[in-house]
């Protein structure tokens, strides 16, 4: 069942961003905060995400507005982190989840012609083959940017177990992407 707020976006109803903000700003702020650790930056990212939603719906017609806004927020937060990093504003610990992904591939190892969307589909297919726990832990860490201790608390595991699970999943993903020809 499609979110009624999506209908507002599709109808170009100017209440749409405000409605979306009311419903999902907490969710989006959570994602942005996890990556940026700066309230003002996070707020700006959520604002950017709402603007991006306004500009992209239509033509896009997301079935799941929450996840869609989360994705836009995530992208805005990554952009902001890039900028902050370039300006030497980001603390080292803030980019840890992203740095961990270097385990999977190096800077230039992804086939250049592969689009992020295609790679995303491959990662989804990979994750669907993993156990629910492994999949959720991976997504919590690299999509939501949850701190390890937060994941541990969420699932009732020790931090070491979470770290070990993440490491195993990263290694398996690297093998999978290599085997499927996505990375060299």
């Amino acid at each position: 069942m499609r979110d009624e707020t999506v209908r507002l976006f599709l109808d170009r109803d100017e209440r749409a961003p405000e409605e979306a903000k009311k419903k999902y700003s907490g969710y989006c702020m959570y994602i942005a905060r996890n990556l940026l650790r700066d309230e003002r930056d996070a707020e700006e990212c959520v604002g950017d995400a709402l603007m991006a939603a306004w500009e992209s719906i239509p033509p896009n017609q997301p079935e799941n507005l929450k996840a869609y806004l989360g994705k836009l927020t995530r992208e805005a937060a990554i952009d902001r982190l890039r900028w902050n990093t370039a300006q030497k504003r980001a603390a080292g610990s803030e980019i840890k989840p992203l740095d961990e992904l270097d385990d999977i591939v190096g800077r230039d190892d992804v086939e250049s012609e592969i689009e992020a969307k295609e790679l995303g589909r491959a990662i989804s297919a990979f994750l669907r083959e993993r156990s629910e726990t492994e999949r959720n832990i991976f997504i919590r860490r690299y999509w939501y940017f949850d701190p390890v201790d937060s994941i541990a608390r969420r699932y009732g595991f020790g931090k070491s177990k979470v770290k070990m699970t993440l490491k195993r999943t990263r290694d398996a993903l690297a093998d999978y992407l290599r085997k499927e020809g996505y990375i060299i």
Binding site: I78, L98, D99
Partner: peptide
């Protein structure tokens, strides 16, 4: 943050998986 493509690709993970993780 060396590998932007992978980072963005993870952002493209199917919405149902994202939702289920939440």
């Amino acid at each position: 943050m060396k590998n932007d493509k992978l980072t963005l690709a993870i952002g493209e993970i199917d919405a149902d998986l994202i939702e289920r993780a939440d």
